[in-house]
Simulated assay, not measured.
Amino acid sequence: MTEVLIIGAGISGASAAFHLAERGTRVRVLDPSGGTAGQTARSGAIVRGHHAVPLEAELAVESLGEYYERWDERVGGGCGFTRTGFAYLADEADAPAVRANTTMLAAQLGWPTELLSPEQLAELEPAVDTARISLVAHEERSGYAEPMAATTSLLRAAERHGAEIRHERVFGLLAGDSRVHGVRTESGEYHADTVLLATGAWSPALAATIGLELPIASARIQVMLYERPYSLAGHLTMTDVAGDIYLRPTADRCTLVGRHAPEREWLAGPEENRAEHDHSFMLDCARRLGARVPAMAGAPFRLARTCALDITPDGRPLLGPAGPEGLFLAAGWSGSGFGKGPATGAELTRWILDGRPRRPGLWRYTLDRFAKGEPIAGEHEYGATGPH
Rank of each mutant, 00 (worst) to 15 (best):
A346T: 07
A145C: 10
W111H: 14
T237N: 02
A198K: 03
T250N: 11
R248E: 03
E227I: 03
T366C: 11
T2S: 13
A145V: 05
A377Y: 05
A97V: 06
P321E: 14
N273I: 12
T306S: 10
A150L: 08
A87E: 00
G182N: 08
Y246M: 11
S43G: 09
T209S: 13
A175K: 06
E379I: 12
L236D: 00
L154I: 06
E22N: 14
F338P: 12
L247M: 13
H380D: 07
T349Q: 06
M1V: 14
D354C: 07
A297P: 00
A268L: 12
R99W: 02
R220E: 08
E265H: 10
E189Q: 13
V75S: 09
A60R: 15
A60C: 13
K340E: 07
T209M: 08
W266L: 10
E139T: 09
L173T: 01
T194C: 07
P300A: 11
G234P: 01
A157K: 11
F301D: 11
T103L: 13
R179A: 07
A150Q: 03
L362C: 08
V75M: 08
T25I: 13
P204V: 08
H138G: 04
F370K: 10
H167W: 06
L64Y: 11
E69P: 00
A251R: 15
R132F: 00
T344S: 04
F301K: 02
M148F: 11
R184E: 13
G172E: 04
K372P: 02
G38E: 10
P321F: 01
R305L: 15
W333F: 15
E119L: 14
L353K: 04
A57C: 08
I311N: 01
T103C: 14
L155K: 13
G176E: 15
A371L: 12
M148D: 14
R358W: 11
A291Y: 00
G76W: 08
I245V: 06
D368V: 01
H161C: 07
A37H: 11
H279D: 12
G378D: 10
G188H: 05
G378L: 02
A201E: 02
L30Q: 10
A308H: 01
A175V: 06
Y190M: 06
T385E: 15
A251P: 04
T366K: 03
E119S: 15
G373W: 03
G80H: 11
G211M: 09
T250H: 09
G339Y: 06
S203Q: 01
A41W: 07
H161S: 06
E139V: 05
P294D: 01
P126D: 08
P324F: 13
E73W: 01
A198R: 02
A14C: 13
L283W: 06
